[in-house]
């Protein structure tokens, strides 16, 4: 299982965000994308999951471009964007149930409640999401990570709005996914300690866009 990025280029308006970006990511690897605001971190993540089109280059999953195997790729992908995809008129439980079902999996109510409890939302499961705080809404979105079977996680600033407990929990979840043969790509300023696996870093501030490896076996 591998994600191969070949010579990727993205241009927004007049500005070239990045070009000639190439890397290979396999299981048991975590990639951190760094860069100042406006350097194209989110654009890169959206391009990797197929929401945005690259101006040049290609993204391969299992040696096939993601466009050619849309459904297979999306089945193995968990994407978390800036927005939490939480409906204010639905409860935390309903939101989680609908979002996991859309991703193609169905879970029993016990499993969903357990995931919400694990992420620290015990007591808020049936509350209307309008009453949840920003951090709690983020937790509902992240509860999907505890349930998903997706191999590739693409997370855009997953730690934003979370408190200490949730940050710790999320670090554990990400680390255990990487250890269990998963692959994670994320943008964050937060360290994610791993006990096994490899951390790769890409810094979009630099012009050469070569990934720096920091081995962590």
């Amino acid at each position: 299982m591998s994600l191969v990025v070949n010579n990727l280029q993205c241009i927004r308006g007049e500005k070239e965000l990045f070009s000639g970006l190439s890397f290979v990511l396999t299981n048991k690897q975590l990639m951190r994308i760094e860069g100042q605001n406006g350097t194209g971190k989110t654009t890169l993540l959206r391009t990797l999951c197929g929401l945005s089109q690259a101006d040049d280059g290609e993204v391969l999953w299992h040696n096939l471009t993601i466009k050619k195997q849309d459904e297979v790729f999306r089945n193995e992908l968990f994407y978390l964007g800036h927005h939490n995809a939480i409906k204010a008129d639905l409860s935390a439980l309903e939101n989680l149930q609908i979002n996991t079902a859309l991703a193609g999996a169905s879970y029993s109510e016990e499993q969903l409640l357990q995931a919400l409890e694990d992420i620290g939302l015990f007591g808020s499961e049936y509350k209307s999401s309008a009453q949840l705080s920003q951090g709690q809404k983020r937790r509902v979105a992240l509860a999907g990570l505890l349930l998903t079977n997706a191999k590739l996680w693409i997370l855009d600033e997953p730690f934003v709005a979370l408190d200490g407990f949730a940050v710790k929990k999320l670090q554990d979840v990400i680390a255990s996914h990487v250890e269990n043969d998963g692959t994670v790509i994320l943008t964050t300023h937060q360290e994610v300690p791993l006990t096994q696996g490899k951390i790769l870093t890409i810094n979009l501030d630099q012009s050469n866009n070569k990934p720096n490896r920091s081995d962590n076996d």
Binding site: G50, L51, H83, N84
Partner: peptide, 14 residues
């Protein structure tokens, strides 16, 4: 679109 659900729908495996 505003709350991000549309991205979920677009990325759903269907």
């Amino acid at each position: 679109y505003e709350d991000g659900t549309l991205e979920k729908i677009v990325l759903a495996p269907s």
